[in-house]
């Protein structure tokens, strides 16, 4: 009879695909224990999400759209979370492994003396407790872990769960309530002065059906233009390895891997990427992984479904042309 609390961060865009996945995972776990799940929606527009979250599996919804969450996301988020914890008294506290979850989870776990497992790729209820699996050592090993405390806190990677089919009839049974967080900002709180969001015409990297990613082998920022053209032809997004980010060729927001984004597209095309496990952890959930590399011994050919050895400067534009011929 576990009580589950799933935290969803919103930025005026409604619940994201990963938020609904988290809710689906939490709802299944709650049901496995004959328990309940409460969704906590935080941020701008949270009040309008209630029915949608109920339809996607929440038994109840708490929301907080206090403006303090935008200026002081970490500190104000913690206050809201503490209040929600006092109301719900969860046994399992779930976050997405995104900038909000990675920020709040360790701090709330420390405050509540709770065991925290981060970056889980699997989470199940087994023999009376929540057991998570997660890649460690750059994906070279998998660790299974459980909290020894009454409350288990987990951050969950994209693809670990799946959203439930929405059922509008569920909305009648649950309550949607504003959380009275009474957030009084502290003088020492770090303040967000402004946000610079990189404009992109295509789909978001995390939600794209196709991702074309480049690594050190792309050789420079101009090479990414070639990848962008292929991504555009496939209505996909462009990603990168850490090496390309460190070289300053692309923005850090493009990074895929253990320390960047985890993506789960239908098609992932890795160009000039050696296949270090650090990167592969971020793209191993792709349905089809294609590797293009000049080095026939590149590690990535061990993991890829399809490999092509050759110069991407020829292969990638040729692939874009071939796709247009097929279309």
């Amino acid at each position: 009879m576990a009580r589950v609390l799933a935290v969803l961060g919103l930025q005026g865009q409604g619940a994201s695909a990963s938020g609904l996945e988290l809710l689906g995972l939490g709802a299944r776990l709650a049901r496995a224990t004959s328990g309940t799940i409460t969704a906590l929606a935080l941020g701008e527009g949270a009040g309008a999400q209630g029915e949608r979250l109920l339809a996607h599996g929440a038994d109840d919804v708490l929301w907080c759209a206090d403006e303090a969450l935008a200026r002081w996301p970490g500190e104000a988020g913690l206050r809201a979370l503490e209040r929600a914890q006092q109301e719900v008294r969860p046994d399992l506290l779930l976050f997405s492994a995104d900038s909000l979850g990675r920020d709040l989870a360790p701090r709330i776990a420390a405050r509540l003396d709770a065991g925290l497992i981060t970056e889980a790729t699997e989470l199940e209820f087994s023999e009376g407790r929540f057991v998570a699996a997660r890649p460690v050592f750059g994906g070279k090993a998998i660790a299974r872990m459980a909290a020894t405390t009454e409350l288990t806190v987990v951050t969950v990677r994209a693809g670990a769960g799946s959203a439930l089919e929405p059922d509008a009839s569920r909305a009648a049974g649950g309550s949607v309530r504003e959380l009275d967080a009474a957030i009084a900002p502290g003088a020492a709180w770090p303040t967000v002065l402004r946000r610079e969001i990189e404009a992109s015409d295509g789909p978001r990297l995390e939600e794209a059906k196709t991702v074309v990613s480049g690594g050190r082998g792309v050789g420079g920022p101009e090479g990414f233009q070639t990848l962008q053209e292929l991504a555009d032809a496939l209505k996909g997004a462009v990603g990168a390895s850490r090496a390309a980010v460190d070289e300053g060729w692309v923005p850090a927001a493009w990074q895929v891997g253990q320390t960047g984004k985890a993506v789960a597209p239908d098609l992932y095309i890795a160009v000039g990427i050696s296949g270090a496990s650090q990167h592969m952890v971020g793209c191993s959930r792709a349905k089809t992984l294609v590797a293009i590399n000049t080095d026939p011994d590149a590690l990535i050919f061990e993991t890829a479904r399809i490999g092509v050895v050759g110069d991407y400067r020829e292969l990638v534009p040729a692939l874009a042309r071939a796709l247009r011929e097929l279309a």
Partner: peptide, 12 residues
């Protein structure tokens, strides 16, 4: 760094 860009944050 944020998912889709960055924030400029002043420490208190």
């Amino acid at each position: 760094q944020l998912e889709s860009g960055y924030a400029v944050v002043r420490l208190g």
